[in-house]
């Protein structure tokens, strides 16, 4: 068991090193002189250029630059943003809760709706419910979510005026010592209407972000359930007169959930990609929007740091899913 865990963790190290090389290399392979790129359109005098090149360490051999970069990263130093001049890690950690909140809420939506729909569709295979729900799932899976978000804004914010167009909470609320998790902060502040305001801002972005994972989870649950329902042990359980609800709920569902959990874990990377689009549409102040803004502002230290952090987070989450998978499915562990 421990060997299984350790093996999984050790296996990550080369990939982690690779990720740092990608993040490091990205600024260096940019066409042109990085110092000139960072200086922007104002231009530089030759003296200032030489000074900056030296100051930023671009005159040293590439491997020295890389080991310096790696050393700093290991000490939590991702450099400073060219725009705000604040440490990149600080910026990242300030905005990260917004993305986590959105992502968690979306994931809960996707699981809470997707799993029951998938189970029901499998049990009632071929029924109108199965056909309509799986048809809808395929539409959801094919959805350009940036367009879906715009449609929802037109309907719910434009025509019905139910929800705000952008942001995380109405401007009248402010939590100076907040955790960054707006729902929690609003709840704890005890201010009247704060929680409702936070929820009304969260709901549309969550629906948009949840769309594709919801479709994937519903489809995956259905096919996993169908496979399990044909197994001998389910037939045995049925044959010995067990109530159908128990057969499905205990025997089938527990086994069907194993591949579904992997699918849920794999959605984390998808969620990050989705967050880029969702946050841009709804002006949600999270990591996704920050990355897009940093790329268009040519704020390379931020892009570099963000890229590194996101890749590491996705990897760690995938590792946790892998380990959980080993925990719930002994067959994998002892292979």
């Amino acid at each position: 068991m421990i060997r299984f865990f350790l093996g999984k963790i050790l296996w990550l190290i080369p990939t982690l090193i690779g990720i740092t090389i990608v993040a490091f290399g990205f600024v260096r392979v940019l066409p042109g002189d990085p110092v000139l790129l960072m200086a922007g359109e104002r231009g530089l005098t030759p003296e200032r250029h030489a000074e900056l090149t030296h100051q930023l360490g671009f005159d040293r051999p590439i491997w020295v630059q890389y080991s310096d970069f790696l050393w700093k990263v290991l000490h939590g130093d991702l450099g400073d943003s060219l725009v705000t001049h604040k440490p990149v890690l600080h910026e990242f950690l300030t905005l990260f809760p917004a993305t986590v909140e959105l992502g968690l809420f979306a994931m809960v939506l996707a699981v809470v709706i997707g799993v029951p729909v998938g189970v029901l569709a499998a049990i009632k295979r071929g029924s109108w419910f199965d056909q309509i729900s799986m048809g809808t799932a395929l539409v959801g899976y094919s959805m350009p979510i940036f367009w879906w978000g715009l449609l929802l804004i037109i309907l719910f914010s434009g025509i019905l005026k139910w929800t705000p167009v952008s942001g995380r909470i109405s401007l009248i609320y402010y939590f100076p010592n907040g955790t960054g998790f707006m729902l929690w902060d609003a709840l704890m502040s005890g201010q009247k209407g704060a929680l409702t305001s936070a929820l009304s801002h969260l709901i549309l972005p969550s629906i948009v972000l949840a769309t594709i994972p919801l479709a994937v989870i519903a489809r995956q649950t259905r096919s996993a359930m169908l496979e399990v329902l044909g197994e001998d042990y389910v037939r045995t359980a049925r044959a010995k007169g067990m109530p159908p609800r128990r057969v499905v709920g205990v025997h089938a569902l527990r086994n069907a959930m194993i591949p579904v959990i992997t699918t849920i874990g794999l959605q984390v990377g998808m969620l990050m990609a989705g967050a880029i689009l969702t946050e841009t549409i709804f002006s949600w102040p999270g990591i996704g929007k920050w990355m897009v803004d940093s790329i268009s502002r040519r704020d390379y230290p931020s892009v570099q740091g963000g890229l590194l952090m996101i890749a590491v987070i996705v990897m760690v989450v995938n590792l946790i899913v892998d380990l959980l998978y080993g925990l719930i499915n002994p067959r994998i562990r002892h292979r």
Partner: peptide, 16 residues
């Protein structure tokens, strides 16, 4: 390990 759209965005930032 990188979310596909993010990596594509960064590549485009590099390539133009």
């Amino acid at each position: 390990a990188f979310p596909s759209l993010l990596l594509a965005l960064v590549f485009v930032a590099v390539l133009g």
